[in-house]
Design a protein around this nucleic acid. Sequence first.
DNA 1: GTAAGCAAGCTTACGATGTAAGCATGCTGG
DNA 2: CCAGCATGCTTACATCGTAAGCTTGCTTAC
Lengths: 241, 241
Amino acid sequence: MRVEASRQPLSRERVLAEAMNVADDEGISAVTMRRVAVGLRVEAMSLYRHVPGKEQLLDGLVERIVAEVDSAIGDRLPGEDWCVALRRRCLTARQVMMRHRWAPGLIGTRPAIPPDVYLYFEAVLATLIDGGFSYHLAHQAIHALGSMVLGFTQELFSPAAGGDNSEHDNADAELAAMADVLPHIAAMVAAELHDNQDDPLGWCDSQAEFEFTLDLLLDGLARHLDSPPVSPARDADIASQ
Amino acid sequence: MRVEASRQPLSRERVLAEAMNVADDEGISAVTMRRVAVGLRVEAMSLYRHVPGKEQLLDGLVERIVAEVDSAIGDRLPGEDWCVALRRRCLTARQVMMRHRWAPGLIGTRPAIPPDVYLYFEAVLATLIDGGFSYHLAHQAIHALGSMVLGFTQELFSPAAGGDNSEHDNADAELAAMADVLPHIAAMVAAELHDNQDDPLGWCDSQAEFEFTLDLLLDGLARHLDSPPVSPARDADIASQ
DNA sequence: GTAAGCAAGCTTACGATGTAAGCATGCTGG
DNA sequence: CCAGCATGCTTACATCGTAAGCTTGCTTAC
């Protein structure tokens, strides 16, 4: 083999991989252009050949996290119930988040939702629709499960919560641009828009979603209060990998 | 009245108030020592007379948010059910979070849980215990409701999630120091410790809490799937104030 | 072979930011 | 009246993201 010119060339992948290492080892706040660069035996500015800027680097980390969850989940089993499938997904997601403790905070504070996250939720939505959910109920379910499936609180869609300046107007545009790879989400948006075209709050009335989730939890707790140990006791075990 | 020497003196309160204004107007990332200072017609370094540093300033903002929720809730009505009380609290908290969109993200990414947040959860816990919850079920309920009552995902207690370096060991200490003003939490910790003293995972096995919440949501969704419009339709309206 | 073109990494520099260290100023109590 | 102190100011530095331009060595057409 060649002498490899003292080192393999830099690449977006190598930059992101090193950034993940730094985040895992020293926390997300240690992920600095300079710190990532020294990890790669390179100067800070060299990273800009492969990554547009720090924000995009962080988006890249989110991308990697989502990919890690996706690959850890594996394919859906043939006759798998929506409930079991989602439970498996959430538990897998949690495993990944435990490996990368900084990830929920990062995902939750990203100013815009990275495209991969939409793809991720498309899969969740597909599971629900396939399980017999109406678009409306599925919409509420996604909001309810929001923090379980990726460990983040950020309001999905319009609100553009965590970030600074409201730039959610192009979130809708981005979503529209991806409509072909997000068939279920596109259909859901269409259905919800149709049902709520006179609703001044818009199709995604997060107050309604909030109350739905809240009542889901309160009702569940009330049931536990009435009948203490009769709880579900599900079976699905997460594959130890 | 006096001439007031060209301006009223600075104070921790004035600093925090201005920081909140900046956060509300320009986003949390605009909350900079220099930016807050100009808002007060003062130099950046002058703030350090009244606030130890930026981290403590941010903790002060959390403190203010919690106080705002507390005061907006008002006193608990005499015969109010735990369920109605919690619902009112969550909806009130949401109103406050809507007024300060940056707050959930800030609370969620604080490296340590500020003392006031413990006090806040003490009140939630008191409501649950008063409603007949066992300490164990109440513990699970708090985790389940975590993101509803203050809009944040951070794992309560031990894990020290969002932040960087794990400094959760002194979180327990801080909690112990406040035991006298946190009677219910102290009792809950004691009860859970007693029940799980041989559990290698410690008293707060967040995996168990996670699965509890997850099943609460999945069961609730399954119920909605079976009987579409028979949902709770609760009464409690949030006082418009 | 060789020179043009270029990809990839480097150097330098600038404007934010948090904050350490010490200075200036004016009020207050003896 | 003045010593002492509280309060705000000035200066300075380390760290951060990144703009602009330079160097170097490979590729490729001739």
